[in-house]
Design a protein around this nucleic acid. Structure first.
Lengths: 329, 329
DNA sequence: ATTATAAATGAGAGCGCGATCATTAAGAAT
DNA sequence: ATTCTTAATGATCGCGCTCTCATTTATAAT
């Protein structure tokens, strides 16, 4: 292993100067920079990140806490986060937020420079974790709405606007009786989408007595169940599921029971999950720019870590209506 | 921050002794262990992993290199890896193997204790990376067949056997003319599956002139294209795609063109990807125990890191035929 | 030339821990 | 009680780097 020391010896300068050309090249004379770089090249020097971390107190790794790391929903988000991290020579470690002891371990072990947190519903556990993070003075960035009293910056997606667009589309298609399959009631995204959907329908003069809302949990199974319960006798002509997985469950039920989509009933989802276009029929949905959100989130957390104050406290991404074949128009 | 030093001071023992109760409790007298633990508890001491890493040369993190980190195909694998890692207080950092510079950076930065590598096809780049890893004497464990000349242990799945089972199932169903959609020709899994499928058909006395093989690339798009090209005029009565994504593309084409599955044609895939059961119709496929494979892989790499020699050089997982509704029987 | 000022470089401590070797205390054998 | 052996504990160095402060060198001003 080649150390800083070795480069110093080879180039004839001190460790301090070599360290400078690595970290703040500006403060050292151009020709000595050249000489030192030559030595580094010659010896194949690579900084030892562990030593650097111990000395500087910075590890160049950020923790990403998600409701479920393995959810398909987040793959593009993670890609966005990772790509930006990579460019700044940072690493990310992802953990499921539900396993707060894992997250807490990260916190305790002093290997994390900052946290990116995506939470779908608040809980006592997460709250406690968060307090500990703040206590350690570590930077936090939220994807989605921040916690109650938190003042950390966030990157959020316009759930309300997206659902509102879908409402306008539904109303424009003259659907008369609509089923809305929500997520869990304590889920923030779900309630925003419900709110936006209602708002949109009202704006279009829709008779709100013909909107039926069921609580689900964003799972295919509950989507299927809801469809089973409410779509049997065919008096609904459209269903809007608060996420694509639920919509998938609905489609599965309808396909199995030979109820034609979209001729007999229209179905829409939210997320534009990767599988949405491969469902049968391809699913009309609302797209969230997850990759870009991931990028923005990582950019912002890095700024906070670098004490760069030029960040917006709230970065909002808008959504896009993706019209496929699952809705009669 | 509470340091070892602080615990030492509080308990009245030296840093060395405190360090011992953390790492090799056996060598210190029971009652002093008790006292020191009390101090640790009282002060809320948590070891600084960075300092430990610098001193010991071990970082407790392993790199996981995958063809594509964000592929759905690997979510369960990653879960398995992560769960075991967690239990041993290890972290994992996942990187896409295609971005070998990212992987190389990890290697150079000295923060990795070992590598778990899943590669689907060999290439010059990966080969070079691997040589560097070996040069640094870092442990390697392969998921899937190891590289040409590598002697590192591996955890592999019985692709041949899985495809063979499918062949037997196909033959048992008396399919006459079969299309096999492979992955890329240099893909190891694909060629094993092709091999196993042929073997199985031959064992059943299938007329091999009625087996047609196309090269694909494991993507939905190529699956769709293959279906478009070969399934138009309806003389095939079954298709076996070497992975579920390809099969998904096939189903999409058939659905769009109102060709009934499985009445007119049977379709099967390989992987039992998460979406397989939600396709229309639900896909018959071969399941690989990805979660267990991930667990086994992590257990083994940890053993290698700990210089535990009690590991098998090759751990083989068998596959399971999952029969759903996409095949006429 | 001489001094004042700024830029470049060096010396050395310290980050928190593990590991070696030296030292002390305890227990066994005489 | 005395010596020998073993178990328990302590002092100290080193891991590779960053950072502060002191020192030297170059540049500007007189």
């Amino acid at each position: 292993m080649v150390r800083l020391e070795d480069v110093a010896a080879d180039s004839g300068f001190s460790r301090a100067t070599v360290s400078r050309v690595i970290n703040e090249e500006s403060k050292v004379r151009p020709d000595t920079v050249k000489k030192i770089k030559a030595s580094m090249e010659k010896l194949g020097y690579k900084p030892n990140m562990v030593a650097r971390a111990l000395s500087s107190g910075k590890t160049n790794t950020v923790a990403v806490l998600l409701p479920d790391v393995t959810s398909l929903y987040y793959t593009n988000l993670i890609r966005g986060l990772n790509d930006v991290a990579q460019d700044s020579y940072y690493h990310i470690i992802t953990k499921s937020i539900s396993k707060e002891n894992q997250a807490e371990e990260l916190l305790n072990s002093n290997i994390i420079d900052g946290f990116v947190i995506r939470h779908s519903s608040s809980s006592e556990k997460i709250d406690r974790l968060l307090r500990k993070i703040y206590k350690k003075n570590l930077p936090v960035l939220f994807i989605g709405k921040p916690f109650n009293n938190s003042t950390s910056p966030s990157v959020i997606v316009d759930n309300v606007g997206g659902a509102r667009k879908m409402a306008h589309y539904f109303a424009g298609n003259k659907y008369r009786k609509i089923l809305f399959i929500a997520g869990r009631n304590d889920n923030i995204d779900s309630s925003d989408r419900k709110y936006g959907f209602r708002m949109g329908l009202q704006e279009c003069g829709f008779d709100m007595n013909n909107l039926f809302e069921v609580e689900g949990d964003f799972s295919r199974e509950r989507g299927y169940e809801a469809a089973e319960r409410y779509l049997k006798n065919g008096d609904f002509d459209a269903v809007f599921a608060a996420n694509d997985s639920s919509a998938m469950g609905v489609l599965l039920y309808l396909n199995e029971n030979r109820i034609k989509v979209p001729e007999e009933i229209s179905v829409a989802g939210f997320d534009d999950a990767f599988f949405a276009e491969y469902l049968w029929p391809p699913l009309t949905t609302v797209r969230q720019p997850m990759y870009e959100i991931g990028q923005a989130a990582m950019k912002n957390i890095l700024k906070i870590i670098d004490k760069d104050t030029s960040i917006n406290n709230e970065t909002i991404f808008s959504t896009e209506l993706v019209i496929r074949k699952s809705c009669r128009s």
